[in-house]
Every structure is written in C-alpha cells, then in structure tokens.
Amino acid sequence: MGNYAIETVGLNFNFGNQAIVKDLSLQVPKGSIYGFLGPNGAGKTTTIKILLNLLKSPSDQVFLFGKEINSNRIAILKRVGALVEQPAIYGHLTGRENLINRCILLGIKKTKADEMLALVGLTDAADKKASKYSLGMKQRLGIAQALISDPELLLLDEPTNGLDPNGIIEIRNLMIELATKHQKTILVSSHLLAEIERTATHVGIINKGQLLFQGTIDELHLLSKPMLEIEVNNIESASTFIAKAGYEIVAQTDKKITVPFNSAQKSGELNTLLIQNGFTVSSLYQQRKDLENLFLDITKTN
C-alpha cells in the first residue's frame, strides 16, 4: 500500500439506483503519470470526484497516500491539486485575482500567483477578467490553480480539453517535467488513447464504471497489437500469396489486406516479397487499433 499514491479497493458508487463505478480497484504508483482512459460517461469524472471526497465513498475503499479518505479528508486534500471538468474560475475576477483567492484559501504567499501565471504562460493576460479568457486560457488557469499549492498528487480531468495543438504539447511537456523532475504523481484522464500514450507511464482503462485494464504502458502495447495494412492490386491472388508465404490474414476488403505487424524489418520483407512476385503495392502502413477496438478486445479477453 505504501507504494501507491492512490489505491481504491473494490470501489462501488451509485447515483440513486444507477451504478456509476463498479468494483473499481485503481492502483496508481507514486511518481507515475497514470493515464485514466475511457469514453465519455465511463465514470472517470465521478472517480476523480470520489478521490477528492466531493462524492462520498463507502469507508475503507479509497486510500490516498495510504490513508483512508473519509477520515483523513483535510490531511489528504492538502497534498492534492485538481482540475475537475471545466476549470472552476470566478469570471468576474482577473486571472491573477483567481489565483490570489486560491492563495488566501490555502494560506500561501500571494507571490506564488505570479509564478504560476508565468508557468502556464498567462502573464500577459493576468489582469484580464477570466470570463473574457478563451477556453484554452481558462484551462491553463485551471492547471495553474491545481499546481499552486505544489501538491504531490495532481488529478487532471481532461486537461488538454479545448487547447490548440501548441497548448496540448505544452501541457504534455509540463506533465512529464512535473513527474520526472519534481517527482509528482499525476492522474490524468482522457478519452483519447493517442493522448495518453505520449505521456503516461501507467494506464487504467475504464468503461461503464468497470476497470477493464490496468498496467504499464508497455503492457498496454502488448494488448493493442498493431496491424499492417497493405493496399495492393490484384487483391485476391495477393492474399493467397501472402497466406502461402506464411502470414496470418486478419482481415481483407476489396482494397486492402490486414496482417499482424511484427517489426519494421518484417514489413519491409513482405513488401519486397510482394513486389518481386509482380504485385504493385500502393501503400503499406502500420495501423494501431483505435480505442473502441481496443475496448472490444479487452472486454473479449476478460
């Protein structure tokens, strides 16, 4: 238990009769970037709210830093920074004032507000009313608010929502820096596998309130077997030829043939083989399974 920043043990949560989270056992190791992956409505935000004690969990099911959350709420929250859904920002206050308000609540120095503004690149907009901010700027301010108390654990609910590609890269780099240089633990939720793959060291996949997969990013890669898609002329004879050559054909349409991807070298060999035998290969590329297919895969194996 000591090695986990977050641990839930068979967590169940209902809104009325509707079960939102079912038997969820999260294990977020200290110092990891934990990608919390799932489609909209899977229970990600609910789980994050439970981790913040905004929604009351049954006792002895949720532990942060090894402590039970309901009986250690304040002590735990002191070590956590969070961005939940839309950032919670007072529209009538400026960006700086929003951060100063947070400083007042947390009893920290007001100079920290300017540091945070610089960190998320809002120094120029510091004195602009937050209601006039763009979605991306609000998101940055939300992240600044989450970081202001220098917490050990960060809970970020879709932090790249509404950001432009530049902003997404900045947030990504910031997360990596926080985890590697400052030894922070970050739980980041997303519905985009590609987004999580780039930053996370660990992944948890949730669907309909159930955890379908949990492990390191490499373990996930083993599950999400990449495929090689080949677009070739004379498709019928090409497929017979490929099968004869000892490859397993996963799928075939009237335009392309899909075989399991092994390595770049093997792909090249197959390409050469096809060309040497008189086929015209118009395209040959590695295709990763998208999240939906991965879900199907994982649910099947479970």
Binding site: K49, L52, L54, L77, V80, V84, A88, Y90
Partner: peptide, 9 residues
C-alpha cells in the same frame, strides 16, 4: 466553483 471550494483542504 462549489466543487473547487469543497476540494480545498
């Protein structure tokens, strides 16, 4: 901002 307020220590 209720959620932010009640997520403070």
């Amino acid at each position: 901002t209720w959620k932010m307020l009640f997520a403070q220590p």
